[in-house]
Simulated scan of single mutants.
Amino acid sequence: MRVIVRTVSELCITVGTLIVLFVAYVLFWTGVRADGAMSDQIDQLHRQWSQGSVPKKDTPGEATASVNDPGPYHYGKAFAIMYIPRFGFTWNKPVLEGTGRDVLAKGLAHYQGTAQLGQEGNFSVAGHRRTYGDPFLDFPELRVGDAVVLTDGTTWFTYRIDKGPYKTVPTDVEVIDPVPRKSGYTRPGRYLTLTTCDPEWGHSHRLIVWAHLDSTQPVDTGEPAALRR
């Protein structure tokens, strides 16, 4: 009996240790790796942009400014940086093409097949709420009128949130349609959709916000008003 009790106790200790190590990995190590990966992606973008490697092909844009066509996006490659002042003026994350697990571990993920940045349609982006750097941890704090600012190295794109956070289920794929049915939009436009998981430590639901392109301006004119403190 003593041997059985000791064996069971040792097994419990081993299992408990493994659980603690797993939780530490999920909470800490994935965050450390993701923060490093996101910083590397942003540094790479800044280097590319400083070398003038962003294609510039003007297309008709909104009355506020012309919008550049960046050419095709490539899976797993960063092409823009997102800023959300509501999350703090130091918050910025890279946006990469594709929504695979490997991509989401390095930043925010652009849904393939949705509109490109600044173009007509629905530019749709996903991000983790928890783990891998917690990029969208404060997603529920977003409010109507908040700015979501992105740059592709040549242009600043300022979107303004019109609706959300809206709670739905993962199978509700209509949220990233060109004109999302539940967004309140009734005609084609230049829209942005952000998505993340809900609840904070689960994935049974999704939180959504929808925004419209409010203004654009060339990068060489300085930061947009939404990013000025």
Rank of each mutant, 00 (worst) to 15 (best):
L207S: 11
E141T: 14
R190T: 13
T114M: 02
T171N: 02
Y159K: 10
T195S: 15
D69L: 08
A65W: 07
E120S: 13
K106L: 01
A80L: 08
S124A: 15
V149T: 13
D152G: 14
W91E: 12
L96F: 02
R187S: 15
A211I: 05
D172T: 00
P70K: 00
V125Y: 08
F87N: 03
L227G: 14
L137M: 02
N68H: 08
P180N: 01
F89E: 09
I176T: 14
L108F: 01
R143M: 11
L108Q: 00
S183E: 10
G113L: 09
I161A: 06
V169L: 02
W210D: 04
T168H: 00
D198W: 14
T186G: 15
K167V: 14
V54W: 05
A80G: 10
V3S: 12
R143S: 14
F136R: 00
V219Q: 10
D172S: 02
G71E: 04
Y185D: 05
H128A: 09
V169P: 00
V175D: 05
A226M: 09
G164W: 08
S124Y: 04
T158L: 14
R47E: 06
I176P: 05
G189S: 10
R86N: 14
D198K: 12
A34P: 04
D69T: 11
G133H: 02
Q119C: 01
F123Y: 12
T193V: 15
R86G: 07
Q217S: 15
W29S: 07
A65K: 02
A37P: 02
F79H: 13
K93R: 12
A211E: 09
P199A: 12
M1I: 01
R47Q: 06
Q48D: 10
P218E: 13
F22T: 11
W156A: 12
Q119M: 03
A37H: 02
L27I: 11
T186M: 12
F28N: 07
L45D: 02
W29V: 14
I81A: 00
W91S: 11
D138L: 07
T17E: 10
K167C: 11
I4G: 04
V125H: 07
L45T: 04
I176C: 10
P199M: 13
V209N: 08
P165R: 06
S124F: 04
T158Y: 13
K167T: 14
W156V: 09
L18F: 15
V8C: 08
H203K: 14
G164V: 07
Y25R: 02
R190D: 05
V169I: 13
Y111I: 14
Y75A: 14
H46M: 08
R86F: 07
D220M: 07
F136K: 00
R228K: 13
A24L: 10
D177M: 10
G133N: 03
C12W: 05
P170N: 04
K93N: 11
H128R: 07
R47W: 01
W49A: 09
Y83N: 04
T196R: 05
A24Y: 03
P55E: 10
V149F: 05
I4L: 12
V179K: 03
